[in-house]
Amino acid sequence: MGRIRFRKRNIPALFFIYLAAFIVFFVSVFPFCWMLSTSFKRPEDTFTSVPKLIPPQFTLENYRRAFQDTLLGRYFVNSIYVASIVTLTGIVLSTLAAYGFSRFRFPGRKACLLFILCIQMLPSVVIIIPLFIVMRNLNALNNHWSLLVSYPTFTLPLSVWMLKGFFDEIPREMEEVAQIDGCSVPAAFFRVILPLTLPGITASGIYAFIGAWNEFLFAMTFLNSHELYTMPVGLNAFFGQFTVEWNQLMAASVFFTIPSLIFFMLVRKYLARGMAGGALKG
């Protein structure tokens, strides 16, 4: 079922399919390869009239200098710190809420679910102004707290919807059996349901992590000292310098992309389910 077969001997068709496949492949992969290539090149091999994809002289110097001459290491630690805390608190809140929405029928359930779905449509620019005023009044500007508080605005709604989908798939009989055996509702949740949905919880946690890892607007607005910058803001600040060190910047970008890449590949098989909630892409 599904995939369309075609006759193997249809040479013109095969030619056009491979031509199209090559174009799609090139467009998707080439920019990434170009980033890798630039990050491993010496500056004198970068600024030439005939660019080369394979570095003539392979070097790790750009990575070394990116870490030594800039605060890249600091940005990395900040990003890990912020994203981890946002992910952990998000997992707790959204797992409980998703279970509640999946298993109980109560007044206001549908309205809350629709509201949570709608939140994903909110442009960050809309809530960033009042959040900025609140943070200023609380003296939380230029402090990681401002990010820890504001990132759930985009991680929570996605996680709740995604996890609700996972809980919906587990038959209710699972808890009923546990309850007949003498478990209370919370005990059945923690001992029976939670272990079963652990892969789903991990997947939604990873999405939250990637979302927080990539976030730019809040971090740019709320932070202004370089020591506190997260990766995206820190990398963008490279442009403030007099000349742009493209080699170092590409090395830093590779370093910024790798965690996202690894995590994404881990949750690839859950992609389709995350989409059911209607909003991935951070």
Partner: peptide, 16 residues
């Protein structure tokens, strides 16, 4: 292969 553009952080690919 087509997932790569989606996986890259928005700011990283904008810089690229």
């Amino acid at each position: 292969a087509i997932l790569i553009p989606w996986v890259m952080p928005r700011v990283a690919s904008s810089i690229l």
